[in-house]
Nucleic acid binder design. Sequence first.
DNA 1: GCGATACTTCGGCCCCCGCCGAACCGTAGG
DNA 2: CCTACGGTTCGGCGGGGGCCGAAGTATCGC
Lengths: 245, 245
Amino acid sequence: MSAQPLARLAGLLADPTRAAICLALLDGRAWTAGELAHHVGVVASTASEQLSRLVAGGLLVEERQGRHRYLRLAGPGTAALVEELAAFAAAQPGDAAATAPAPRNLTESVRRSAEARARTCYDHLAGRLGVAVADSLLARGVVSDDAGLAVTRPGRAWLAGIGIDVDVDQPGRGRRPLVRSCLDWTERRPHLAGVLGAALRTHAMDAGWLLPVGTGRALRVTPGGADALRDVFDISLDDLAPAEP
Amino acid sequence: MSAQPLARLAGLLADPTRAAICLALLDGRAWTAGELAHHVGVVASTASEQLSRLVAGGLLVEERQGRHRYLRLAGPGTAALVEELAAFAAAQPGDAAATAPAPRNLTESVRRSAEARARTCYDHLAGRLGVAVADSLLARGVVSDDAGLAVTRPGRAWLAGIGIDVDVDQPGRGRRPLVRSCLDWTERRPHLAGVLGAALRTHAMDAGWLLPVGTGRALRVTPGGADALRDVFDISLDDLAPAEP
DNA sequence: GCGATACTTCGGCCCCCGCCGAACCGTAGG
DNA sequence: CCTACGGTTCGGCGGGGGCCGAAGTATCGC
């Protein structure tokens, strides 16, 4: 019935270079064409072509400033799609023989990396910190998991108390979900996305709890942030250390 | 980081033939290799190869019986992924110039087709009937849309009253969501999927309210079904007529 | 202006992939 | 058995797509 559009969309992500570009852009920021080319390991001309394809296909949007071409994902919906596909692909054993012989477990170096500890995932928090925040909100009943995630009524008040307003009245249907589960790659457990996830990250960054590390997606917890995370979410920094094998 | 698996997964759906196969299997049934070959318009040998790829990639599972090879989607999660991608692709204008000059509106013939009226979508109801059921359950508070869909407490009792049990206690985390929104292709509005969606369809079919039409995904409302839909969901058959243009 | 920088366009290479037809293999059914 | 039928394997064909390097265009800084 509509196989053509499906194949066209899937085709955009079917190439390792383009896939890597989309994954890099999952950090929610705008990258220049050159940065992306270097990041995914192709020459500038190649990246230019692929980026044009992705823009034409509607997955990316571009913004030209002077001699720079900034690219970012077209929106939260696009990010959600890429996230979901990537999580599904990572969860799939796939052709067990064809995939790398790496066991289900992540390598030690990955598990101990800064990104595994705390990172952004498009516009929300991920890594062990993201999962810990999700657990905390579930544990204190701010978010319920009664058949799909939802913000509870007392939860809304609690969030308002710490300075996060999630106004439920937004432009009509088809809007972005208030809270959404997003499977964490490194933890293989869900963290929070959606409007609430974005608000939490924004709040944490604005309050100086977290700082970006270098140019990647990794985040660093500030001293003040450590106190705040403990007081507000009951998360200790020890929780962010990788579990022993 | 994990571009390779993503590209591999997307690559499975990046071919029109394979995409059409997956869309056909969205009806939730098992098809034989020959049926699929004929349906998507390729010769048997071609289909055989593509089917093997899809099975190796984990999207499809096969079951051999005698000289037949039955194929179906690997599970609800796979169906959800295909649905989501297809809906996203259909919603995307994409390269407006490259896609067919067809306007945003569906053609009259599609809108008036049996499939647009009522059909199955993997294991739940779709089309105008599916959307009407979703609207009905939302209107009477059986399902709430307070930031993600959820079955309400009174809603659970109401469902039990009409003979649908949605037991919330199931094997651990990562289970299938109780109720999930699935964007309807023809209506471009959400209908209900997840455990509840499947239970609704099963109930409607078991009770003889709906019958499959031919070999496709289309459904026909029986006379008794029309009464039941009116009494239970307050849906009249007129609601299933295509809206005037 | 003039050179550096960021990006794009073009040509060409190569490989991969989807398709088919023909031959082959197993099962079902007389 | 022997035929019919569903499915698979294989060879070969054609097209498309990703990659690069080189040349070209636009912008910035001096």
